[in-house]
Nucleic acid binder design. Structure first.
Length: 222
DNA sequence: GTCCAGGGCCTAC
DNA sequence: GTAGGCCATGGA
């Protein structure tokens, strides 16, 4: 029996939907702020918060530092855990200023493992947030694993339900070409698919991967 | 009213 | 090392 590969899944999604042209953010500031606000919340809510920040004229890391934490929190209420996130945003914005001179090129330059470790050591930035920043704001080659990726790979039969972040990331990176555009768009395809279809209560009847998914359950995956 | 959404931190065992 | 609580809105 022919084995289904991750690259086959991507090709199928690409044929169906085209390149998703992602991440949703107009510039590096917006992508960075969005990545932190998106922690454990639907993107719809992030959009509201970003809109609030833009209306207030503070949708950049440099401007965020100047706000009172309470005021920032009030602007990002729609994103859940707003007090925590206001602190995380300002903490990161201060780091950006102090360590990179408010220069994204400097922030994201250097050897990738060391860079990733440094960002991970910042309070409030876990692996998913750091990898989103690196890939989408920094154009660095790291694959982003999120709840959608985990869910889809598990349901398709590729990986174990409780696989760790690093295990999932490693699994994917070993099976797809090392290509920046592919890393970005594959993650985008997964998110877009799961957001609508492969939810906690999935609508499998509408899923373009339903046949592959059944094949996965019978173990015909690489 | 109930469930769930694109995490991460902290504490207890 | 890992399970579970905490953060605490808003739409379906």
């Amino acid at each position: 029996m022919k084995q289904t590969k991750l690259t086959d899944i991507y090709r199928l999604l690409l044929e169906l939907y085209g390149n998703r042209g992602w991440w949703p953010g107009e510039n590096q500031d917006e992508i960075t702020i969005g990545a932190i606000l998106a922690q454990s919340v639907a993107w719809k809510n992030v959009e509201k918060a970003l809109r609030n920040l833009k209306q207030r004229g503070v949708c950049s890391l440099a401007k965020l530092v100047e706000l009172e934490q309470d005021e920032l929190a009030a602007l990002i209420v729609p994103t859940l855990y707003y007090n925590q996130k206001a602190e995380r945003l300002q903490r990161f914005a201060r780091y950006f200023q102090a360590e990179a001179g408010s220069d994204f090129t400097r922030l994201f330059s250097g050897e990738i493992d060391g860079l990733r470790s440094r960002l991970l050591s910042l309070k409030g930035l876990g692996p998913e947030t750091v990898d989103s920043l690196l890939l989408y704001a920094g154009d660095r080659l790291v694959f982003v694993v999120d709840a959608y990726t985990r869910r889809l790979l598990y349901r398709l039969g590729f990986t174990a339900e409780k696989a760790s972040y690093d295990e999932l990331q490693d699994y994917i990176c070993r099976r797809i070409p090392r290509d920046l555009a592919l890393y970005k768009d594959f993650h985008a395809q997964i998110v877009c698919l799961c957001k609508d279809i492969c939810k906690a209560k999935p609508r499998c009847e509408d899923c373009p991967l339903r046949e592959v998914c059944q094949a996965g359950r019978s173990g015909s995956f690489d």
